[in-house]
């Protein structure tokens, strides 16, 4: 009896330590966002006052007006969306078909091609950016949408996951469809795609996050203000010679809050998707 009570108190204290730790780190996780929002609403005097003001008193929207006047954020949003939708769309569709081909067919040079595609994962854009840039220059694609999209029309990650998933599917369904006289393209679009839709959704989501947050390549290839994506827009919103934090925090709020809200709506799905793909990878 006594032993059991002891054990239980031990367990309770362990759980409370766990809660405490999780809570403390949780606060650290959101603090920057909290401070960003507070600062963006704070009147200029309060931004430099000491001790820090933890609540905007009185709140003001002047920094948002400033930020919107200084940079066309809606345009940046549109550009990011165009890039994300086209690159993710292409990657997923091409990935589905290629994944199907690698999973179902046997054909000459199959392994070589598969390894070649996977090996591109080993050569990050950081390595190839210089040569890719020179290639874009030759094609006249610098500072154009095709230029921004070029390295992201296809994704090795998408091909790999589609292949793994389709391989695990029962083959009978495909054989049955073939006997019914369905063409290969139709099999992929009407039979395979619905079966792997959760993987398609996961891959879409992960690629979307990647594309939305992409920076190195866009910052290299984009020159004109009309093409800037949201990350490039934010990085260049900062004026290192005259930093005014109010408008800067308003700008980062504009850039991040919609994504955070969307994430919070989809969070279970996002986390599950990333956990499963991460582990299999």
């Amino acid at each position: 009896m006594k032993v059991q009570v002891l054990k239980r108190t031990g367990e309770i204290s362990a759980t409370s330590i766990a809660y405490l730790l999780l809570f403390a780190f949780g606060v650290l996780m959101v603090l920057p966002f909290y401070w960003m929002i507070v600062a963006s609403l704070q009147i200029p005097e309060n931004l430099v006052s000491f001790p820090p003001k933890w609540w905007p008193q009185p709140p003001t929207t002047e920094h948002y007006m400033d930020a919107m006047a200084k940079a066309p954020f809606l345009l940046y949003y549109r550009n990011s969306l165009i890039v994300a939708i086209i690159s993710v769309g292409c990657s997923v569709i091409f990935g589905l078909f290629a994944g199907y081909a690698f999973a179902i067919y046997r054909f000459p040079l199959q392994n070589l091609f598969f390894i070649l595609i996977l090996s591109t994962l080993m050569v990050p854009i950081q390595v190839t950016s210089v040569s890719l840039y020179i290639l874009m220059a030759r094609l006249g694609w610098i500072d154009t949408f095709p230029g921004i999209l070029a390295p992201n029309f296809a994704s090795a990650f998408a091909v790999f996951f589609m292949r793994q998933t389709i391989k695990g599917m029962p083959g009978d369904l495909i054989d049955a469809a073939r006997i019914d006289g369905a063409g290969e393209v139709r099999i992929v679009t009407t039979i395979v795609a619905p079966l792997v839709k959760s993987v398609i959704a996961t891959v879409t989501l992960i690629l979307f996050i990647d594309s939305w947050n992409d920076f190195l390549w866009p910052v290299i290839i984009i020159n004109s203000k009309y093409l800037r994506t949201i990350t490039v827009g934010i990085a260049f919103f900062k004026d290192p010679y005259h930093i005014s934090f109010g408008p800067l925090m308003a700008a980062t709020s504009i850039a991040t809050i919609p994504m955070i809200v969307i994430y919070l709506l989809l969070q279970r799905f996002v986390i599950k998707g990333i956990a499963t793909t991460g582990l299999k990878f």
Binding site: N213, V232, I234, T256
Partner: peptide
């Protein structure tokens, strides 16, 4: 899930 650039600015 937040963009590295925006978070780094903050």
């Amino acid at each position: 899930i937040t963009s590295t650039v925006a978070a780094a600015v903050v």
